[in-house]
Design a protein around this nucleic acid. Sequence first.
DNA 1: GATGTAAATATGTCCTAACAATCTATTGAC
DNA 2: GTCAATAGATTGTTAGGACATATTTACATC
Lengths: 246, 246
Amino acid sequence: MSSGLNIQIDRSSPVPLYHQIVQGIETAIHSGSLEPGTRLENEIDLAQRLNLSRPTMRKAMDELVRAGLLVRKRGVGTQVVASQVRRHLELSSLNDDLERAGKKPTTKSLSFSHGPADERVQALLQLPPGTEVYHFTRLRSVAGKPLAIMENWVRDDVVSFEEETLNERGLYEILRTAGVNFRLANQRIGAMVANDYQAPLLKVKSGSALVTMERTAVDDTGRNVETGSHVYRADSYSFEMTLVQR
Amino acid sequence: MSSGLNIQIDRSSPVPLYHQIVQGIETAIHSGSLEPGTRLENEIDLAQRLNLSRPTMRKAMDELVRAGLLVRKRGVGTQVVASQVRRHLELSSLNDDLERAGKKPTTKSLSFSHGPADERVQALLQLPPGTEVYHFTRLRSVAGKPLAIMENWVRDDVVSFEEETLNERGLYEILRTAGVNFRLANQRIGAMVANDYQAPLLKVKSGSALVTMERTAVDDTGRNVETGSHVYRADSYSFEMTLVQR
DNA sequence: GATGTAAATATGTCCTAACAATCTATTGAC
DNA sequence: GTCAATAGATTGTTAGGACATATTTACATC
């Protein structure tokens, strides 16, 4: 079964060629023109037909394999994965995720302070002596329905801002604007039951299930810029991800 | 600050060169000889010094960047990440994880059956007509302490086994032995509170927090081999992971 | 009919080479 | 002194080629 893959390559575009391929195949899969289970043409033919070198084609396929859209097997070929592939758990903020999903999240600041960090936060952010932190708590809602309580600590040598800003823009958006380029984050997902402080804020009964998430984010200079501890209503939120065998 | 990185390369080894580099740098970081924040030599020099081509060196570094151990910045250089990097959330089973951690998990089968799948499982596994499934529930404990209740469905055209086998070996181990090569998995992590069935099995009070995980695993031929729905005691289990910016 | 062998096919690894884009630090002009 | 242009350093992208290794298929042999 030949794939009949037809991708437009624009060599004058600033978008790297391999990324154009990634987008092209992604689109073909999501649009249904590449059905699950389809075997792709082999790398060499495909590269030749699109006037690309094999390394470029391979780099594109590598990305798709890592993203979980394709499966490769030596000596056999490359196949479209036969499953509804979920978006990879990306390094993004809740705010971004919601906006991308077409929702309109609102945020309300519950507390805001600026000063020295306690020992735990100092260790998590590996703060240099003298560096202080912003510490704040926010309630995020969608369509009037509370979704998450978010407590965060941000080092004050990367950005400076006021409490009001947090009501208008997402934290990651603020940090990106300030020139912070996030590269990776360590996070831990668990569960707890809502206590008497959380329950009324999230409009759930005390004792309801909550998803917890703790995250520390690192920027491209290697600094631990931000750490946070969030809780989500379990009936409205869960973490989806695709794991790929290395 | 030069890194003084010294890695032994064995060209007669069957282990790919780029993977030897990955291991070498990983070891150097974990052993402390490459401290967090250290700038590595540039790719070209490093490749030359180890008698490798730059693409090979880059491939190794790519992996380490994806694994969250290194951070690269164009025009600047490559740095060791200044954070305690957690192991990436891998495509592995709970049993594997526990054994790797030195624990000795025990498993008790709670139910076992073989027959046609219901609609939901049929869709999740994209079962071809006529294919049936094994359906079973297990309780996993560590040091006598119950940790998780695991309900799984496995298509019967990849493996055949008995209930007793599940008490002795992990599911993924059984499947791998049967020649299944897992490539990726889609999973969703959430939370719930323990109901009256779960609570006594896990030896927690009804209403305690549980972490939930649903997973469907795909093998190297693109088949959805297995799907499962697990619950974990929230006081003993959480999911840790490193997210990397693409 | 079962079994082993070889060829065809596909991905995996590795190399050399060149140029582009970005960031830093320095230099020079005003 | 300040700001802009520039040079150097470093990673990012792309090309083309060669050989290795795994898998399947077809064929020959027993």
